[in-house]
Structure formats: structure tokens, C-alpha cells
Design a protein around this nucleic acid. Structure first.
Lengths: 160, 160
DNA sequence: TATTGTTATACTCTATAACTATA
DNA sequence: TATAGTTATAGAGTATAACAATA
């Protein structure tokens, strides 16, 4: 297990990233809602997704994802495809309009990121990406072992 | 300037971090408001701060920071110290209670982070921290050159 | 009974704009 | 005139709980 000091230092850096990411997000010109745009970006990255899975990826409640998807559907950004093997669930898929909106937003951030990283080499950026990817893997693995309280409230019912 | 592909990959990883950080944040047990706690954490890290500087660090509007500080003051977590060299501004400082609340929250996240990073060496974590610190520096430097639109609307007045 | 998704409601966080007071 | 901060208001985003439909 790594030392407290080492983890404390990373914690400081992650809290910095919170502000950095927030700034990048708010820099994106948006037509609909920002939260909806985040859904589109997730769909572009992962392909068609169920509502529940989309909510997991975005770390929001299912009801929130449901609302955003409903809104995006009204605006022609996504379509719902019935799941042939489970009548309760749907697959959400980008329309060409939705794909374009997500692509534009990503291109915009990527451009600003490239400007920000003007002094970096590709190798350095790739190394940072690799470490962040590994952090994500460790995070998922740890949560699979010790699930987040808010997500397990239902499962714990059997305890009484 | 780094390549589009390299930056695109980092963008994906940063969007993952958004979810990871959100999960860590929401895992913290909170007595007051979460946003208030973020103010306390910033104050613990930076020492006493003016409202405006606090707002910058948190990437929120000054009015937002003002509200949170007012709330924290009511709950005895911070005190305002008049700025002897400028009657318009105040310094915000943690009380012992506020310091304890911030310390507890940080310790809680640090503990979970240490669990998450159980397989990492201290060297690997330190390397990630260093790259993130450098990203933060590049971000600040770039913004100093090309300020964020929402923060410059006032300054641009002279253009007409 | 458990799970997937929806809806209604209320709460948190936020930005905007108008304001006060100091510089 | 410009800046630091406050307040009122409205909007975005969210979780919670109750619900319907399917497994």
C-alpha cells in the first residue's frame, strides 16, 4: 500500500484537475444543455448504451440519465432502439445530428488541449494518458471489491 | 504542438477522471454542504484567501464563493479578517472547527485513494502527480495568454 | 421478487445582474 | 471609473421516492 504522503500529493493534483476539467467543459459552446452534451460524448465513445449503463459511466442517477436522453430524443440527437432480449430496456444510439454535436464538442476541447500542451512532447502526453488509464482501471477494480455506498443501498437490504 | 491523436487520447482519460473525481467527492461524508467543504479544503491548502481568489481557485463566480463563505461563517467554520490595505476586501481564514472538517474530509479521500492504489508503487504515483502538476502549470500559463471568455467579457469593452 | 426505466418533487449548486462601498 | 464583495433571482443539474412494466 502506498504511503499517506504520496497519496496526499496525488489528491492535491486531482483536486486541481477538477478545476481544469471544469474550465475545459465550460469553454465548449453549447446549443442544448451541457449535461446532454456529456451524454452524447459518452455515446460517441462507447457506441449504443442502455440508460443504466450510461448513468454508470456519467456517475449520475439513472433517473438523471433518463431525463437527459428523453430531452436529447426530442431534439433529434439520439434514438431509442428496443432491446430484443429484454423488453424493459432500450438501447440509446446517436443520430447523425447527435454524432456531429458530440464530434464538434470533442474537437473544440481537443484543440484547446493541444494549445495548452504546446510545450509537451507526444511521448509525455502519452505517458500521462497511460497513467490515467491505469488509475481508471484501479478505480473500477477497487469499486468492484468495495462498492460505492450509494449504489449498494438496495443490495444491503438482506442484512436485517 | 502535439498531435491530434495524442491529445484525443488524453481527452478521453480526462473525461474518465471527471467521473473518478466525482465519485471520490460524493463518497465523503458531509455535515454542511459539499460546495462549502470544497471551500474549506482550498483554504486549508492555501491559507487565508480573499473571496475573489477563492472563486478563481474553485472556478466559480465570485458571488458563489461569497455565498458559501457567508454560510460557512454562520456555522463557525471560517472567520473574515479585514484587509488593512484595502477596505473593500476581506481575508477568509479557517477556524479550528473548519480546519478539522477539511482535514477529516481530506483524510477520508486519502484513505480511499490509498486503497484504490494498492497495487501502485510510490514512484508511479509520484510520477503521475508530477505530470498532473505540470498539466496544471501549462493550463494556467495558457490561460494567462488566452484568458477564458467568461472571465474577460468585462475587459473587452474597450474594443468598440 | 428483482430489475429497468420513467416521472414528480425538492434540493444543491450555479451564473447573471443590480447593487453597495471602497479605490 | 474600476474593483471587491453582496444580494436577489432564475436556471441547470441532481438525488430521492413512488411508480409501471418486464424478467
Amino acid at each position: 500500500m502506498p504511503s499517506d504522503d504520496t497519496c496526499g500529493e496525488l489528491l492535491v493534483r486531482l483536486s486541481d484537475m477538477q478545476a481544469v476539467i471544469k474550465s475545459f467543459r465550460q469553454d465548449v459552446p453549447v446549443t442544448g444543455s451541457r449535461a446532454g452534451l456529456m451524454c452524447l460524448v459518452a455515446l460517441r465513445r462507447c457506441g449504443e448504451l442502455r440508460i443504466g449503463r450510461l448513468a454508470e459511466l456519467l456517475e449520475v442517477d439513472q433517473s438523471v440519465a433518463s431525463r437527459h436522453v428523453a430531452d436529447l430524443e426530442v431534439h433529434g440527437m439520439v434514438v431509442r432502439i428496443p432491446n430484443p432480449s429484454d423488453g424493459r430496456s432500450w438501447y440509446v444510439r446517436l443520430t447523425p445530428d447527435g454524432d456531429r454535436a458530440a464530434g464538434d464538442a470533442l474537437a473544440h476541447i481537443r484543440r484547446r488541449l493541444a494549445e495548452t500542451l504546446g510545450e509537451w512532447t507526444d511521448e509525455e502526453i502519452t505517458e500521462l494518458s497511460a497513467l490515467l488509464a491505469r488509475l481508471r482501471v484501479s478505480f473500477d477494480a477497487h469499486r468492484a471489491r468495495v462498492p460505492h455506498p450509494s449504489r449498494t443501498a438496495q443490495t444491503v437490504k438482506g442484512n436485517r
